[in-house]
Design a binder for these strands. Structure first.
Lengths: 98, 98
DNA sequence: TAATTTGGTTTACATTATAAAGTTATTTAC
DNA sequence: GTAAATAACTTTATAATGTAAACCAAATTA
């Protein structure tokens, strides 16, 4: 088969956006991710949980002054998964095939 | 928002594979697509219907000898949608952001 | 102190994907 | 010549997924 399978965890608009942000930012707070992705808080919370459960990101729940603050970071595993996903995608996007 | 929305019709592993095949092949029969994508006939049938209903491909039901033969071709609309999807995807994949 | 805002989580619903089962016609084997 | 197997799908039922509405707790503002 000429098409490589696409990691279903990353093949999701919002989760991919979150990973994309974290790849280049290395660390980001929940409200920032929410703003950058345009997602609702509920949806974002769920998708962050999934990425975290898969070990693609790590989530630190801390406080900023007296308010809760959720910080996300990408893991090595997440970085590798993202790279593999991009490679797999290429098998679908290359216009000229041999 | 820095991320462009992804056409949900194309953001699907099997439908993307079908479109990818048709982009370069311009015409393909059902069994060939089935073999190339590794999909089950049922799944493929459903996804071809969706692409066809959206006007991204056109489906010709003909006969090869006495057996039915389903031929798929990409439309201009489909080609443009695919190109737009690839462009949109780039907003998620670029590692270095400005 | 009541209302609003911040920063989320939970949950219920709607959509989507997928595979199993079904359909129709055609070969092939006996 | 007819029974079994194959081809080429389609339909449908179920499982998985995505999404938003509702909810919660604490802090701030009016």
């Amino acid at each position: 088969m000429q098409f490589q399978p696409l990691d279903p965890l990353l093949h999701s608009e919002l989760r991919l956006a979150v990973m994309s942000l974290l790849i280049s930012a290395d660390e980001a707070e929940f409200p920032y991710i929410k703003e950058q992705t345009g997602a609702t808080a509920g949806n974002l919370s769920v998708q962050i949980d999934k990425l975290s459960a898969a070990g693609y990101i790590e989530v630190e729940k801390t406080f900023k002054g007296k308010r809760p603050c959720t910080i996300c970071r990408i893991t090595d595993m997440g970085r590798h998964a993202f790279e593999a996903y991009v490679e797999a995608l290429k098998s679908y996007l290359t216009v000229c095939k041999p």
